[in-house]
Design a protein around this nucleic acid. Sequence first.
DNA 1: CCGCTCATGTAACTGGTTACATGATTTA
DNA 2: TAAATCATGTAACCAGTTACATGAGCGG
Lengths: 187, 187
Amino acid sequence: MYAPGVRKRRYSELECFTLGLVWQLGPCSPYDVRRHMLGSPSTQWSASAGAIYPLVRRLHRRGLLSVKAKRTGKRARRVYRVTPAGMGVLRGWIGPPLDPEAITAVYDPLRSRARFLAAVPREQRRRWVAAAQAALEEVAARIRRWDEVYGSSGDPIAPLITRHGELDVRARSQWLEELRRGIDEHR
Amino acid sequence: MYAPGVRKRRYSELECFTLGLVWQLGPCSPYDVRRHMLGSPSTQWSASAGAIYPLVRRLHRRGLLSVKAKRTGKRARRVYRVTPAGMGVLRGWIGPPLDPEAITAVYDPLRSRARFLAAVPREQRRRWVAAAQAALEEVAARIRRWDEVYGSSGDPIAPLITRHGELDVRARSQWLEELRRGIDEHR
DNA sequence: CCGCTCATGTAACTGGTTACATGATTTA
DNA sequence: TAAATCATGTAACCAGTTACATGAGCGG
C-alpha cells in the first residue's frame, strides 16, 4: 500500500537501462549515453535522440538524475548523475525479485525466420543457413570489437557481459549447424 | 526503382511472423494465432487482441491473406489463409538476404540487469544470481512444455526451434555460473 | 444458471522511431 | 573552407499495449 498519490511508478526497460548507464559511465551527458548504446552489439534500441533526450529529462524531473550545466567555450553540455533516489530505482529494477517479464526465452530474429523455413524452396533453405552463419560471424566480430573498447574499464563484471555475447553466439552457431544437418536429411 | 505508387512496403516483424504462423497453422483465425503466440515461451509479443485483429485485417486488405467466413451455429469465425502474394512476402522476409536488423546479438533482460550488478550490495548480488538461475529453470520448464505440445506437429523443423530454446537456456545457465564465480572472487 | 472459454473487436494511450533543425567545434 | 562530428533538441508519426465491450457456447 502506498500513500495516496504516491503510486509506485513503473519505469521502462530503456529508462532503467539508461539510469544504469549514467551510473556506470559516471557523470555524463545524454549524448554520451547515446554514443555508448550506438556502439553496442545489441540493436535492441536505436538510441535515437528523440528517445534519449526526453527520457533523461523525465528521469531528472522525477528526481532520479541530477544535472549540472557545463560549457566548453560556447558549446553547452548537460552532465547528469544518478541521485540516491535514482540508485534506489536502479537497484529495485535489477532485483531480486526479477520482473516476470525478464524471465523469458530470448528473442532471436534468426529463429523467427527459421521457424518458417519449410515455406521456402530447398535451395533457398540452404542459402539461408549459410547467410545466417555469416551473419553470426559478423555479430561475433562486433562483440570482439566491443570487448576491446569496453573490456578494460576496471569493472570486474564488464568482461562477463561480453562473455554473455560470446556464449550466445556460440550457442546459436551450434544451433545453426544442427539446423543445417536437419535440413539436409529431409529433402 | 518501382513504378509510381508501387513502393516496396516494409512489413514489421510481427506482421511477417503472423503471416508465417497463418501459413504454418494452416487456414486459421486471428484467435488461433493469438492462442499460439500466448503459449509460446518467448514473451516478445503480448499477442494482444488490439494488435492481432487490426494487423490481420491489414494483411488481408493488402492481399497477403484471403478470408473465408465460417460459422458454427451463431458463432462467427473468420478463417484466413496465405495468398500467393503473401507467400512472396513471407519468403522475402525470411531471406536471404537477411534484414540487417536480424543480424544482432540477442537481447537478454538478465544481461541488461547483470551489467549493473556492481551497483548493488554484495549480498543482493548473490541473491540476484540465485534468482536468475531459478528464473532460467522456469524458462526451461516452459520450453519443455511447449515442446510436448508442438514438437509432434510433423514439421521436421519444429523440434529444431525448440532446440534453439534449449541451447539458449544452456548457454545462459553457463554464463550465470561463470558470473557467480566471478562475483565470489571480487568481494 | 454461473462461470469459463471462444471469438471478435474498439478506444485511448504511450514509448519509441524517423526525420528534421540548429549551431559549435574539429579535422582533412 | 568544406565536411564531419559534437551536442542539443523538436514534431509527426505509428506499432503495439492496456483495458474494455459484446455475445455465443459449453461444462459443472
